[in-house]
Computed example of a mutant assay.
Amino acid sequence: MTSATPVVIYPPDEGGGRRVRVAERILGRAYSTSDVARLLQEVGLQSWDEMDVVRSALIEWRGGGPGVWTR
């Protein structure tokens, strides 16, 4: 993954998890911005942290921004 690859964070599910997708690949489910950062680190963005997740224009937040983790 490159830092130019779009990331989609889907709306929270019933349990408060949000699917995280990079390109056509679902990376997993996140329950916080730190989970999103960890998933992105696992696919090559090792230097990313929670603040990168919150600020990045490469991330498309669906169903609420980085502060929304419940329905």
Rank of each mutant, 00 (worst) to 15 (best):
S3P: 05
D52G: 09
T70Q: 13
V7P: 00
R38M: 15
V22P: 03
R55P: 00
E50D: 14
L27I: 07
P12R: 00
R29T: 15
R55V: 05
A57I: 12
G64E: 08
R18L: 04
G16D: 01
A57F: 14
L45R: 13
V53Q: 04
L45N: 08
S56C: 08
G64D: 10
P66F: 09
P66Q: 01
T70H: 13
V8L: 08
T5H: 01
E50A: 12
W69C: 02
R55I: 11
D49S: 08
G15H: 08
P6S: 01
P11A: 01
R19W: 06
P11N: 02
A23R: 05
I59F: 00
Q41S: 09
V22N: 01
I26K: 04
S47H: 15
D52H: 13
E50S: 07
A30I: 07
A57C: 06
T2H: 04
P11R: 06
I26N: 15
E50Q: 10
L39F: 12
R18W: 01
V22F: 04
I59T: 05
V36I: 15
S32C: 03
P12S: 03
G63S: 09
A23Y: 02
M1L: 05
R21S: 06
R55G: 03
W48V: 13
R71M: 11
G65C: 09
S32F: 02
L58M: 07
G67Y: 02
